[in-house]
Amino acid sequence: MSPLVEVRDLCKHFPVGAGATVYAVEGVSLEVGRGETLAVVGESGCGKSTLAHTMIRLHDPTSGQVVLDGVDISTLGNRALREHRRKMQIIFQDPFASLDPRRPVGRAVAEPLLIHGLATGSEAEDLVADLFVKVGLEADMMRQYPHQFSGGQRQRVCIARALATNPQLVIADEAVSALDVSIQAQVINLMMGLQDELGLSYLFISHDLAVVERMSHRVAVMYLGQIVEIGPRRAIFENPQHSYTQRLLDAVPIADPRARRDRPLLTDEIPSPVWPAGTSPDRVVMREVVPGHLVAEEA
């Protein structure tokens, strides 16, 4: 079976004045299989969020293709795009900012149903009630306002809204990063349960490697706009090949005081993705470690 999403050689560049360019996403290719979670990890400025936003056409790509279920959506016009948009939904980091404070949360969840003409009136209300139950809320909470919910509950509402159109792909852009750990764990368990139940695919954008290790099938490591390593979760975590992947894994604090390590007192930092006029990053060359596990060649 073909993968649900194929991203081919996707680029997204932003001009930043004086001829300089941010190469936010540079030649990214990846696939997300059906029912699979692909995690994209990296540090701030690596382009992981821009990748997600470009995939669902919140930005138009500079070049490259995004093939969703056999259709290249990277060049579709607005009307045709709308048809396909309902197949992929996004959940953002900040559940506070992504809900309208003046409207009952049920309306927010019903909205995609109404926009895409999937249901009307009482039919929509029933569907919203079902969705609320599905994400672990009570059906009559749909009449309440966002300020009456805790952060975790709000993120559940956002998940319900994302699921309303019956999507095949859900992009979670740091969706659990702002939550307290106990709430975070519950939301992650919910997302994994929904994946089993509905056969969803997730593109899970995160900076938190410990969370990624929990819930992903495959992992892509992004650095300065490019993927430097991609492969099955176990390969990335247990046999990391690229020096950046290793550095990233070494840096994660381990919740065990006996595993405390002496760290070298480094002061180096991540270079900037801004390239002055007339310069551009070199494309990395990937080599296959084992089938499915690719790593960028290093000097």
Binding site: D268, E269, P271, S272, A296, E297
Partner: peptide, 13 residues
């Protein structure tokens, strides 16, 4: 050439 993995950040200029 490959991407520089470490280095002093070039900052914002």
């Amino acid at each position: 050439m490959t991407l520089p993995v470490t280095g002093v950040s070039p900052e914002q200029g």
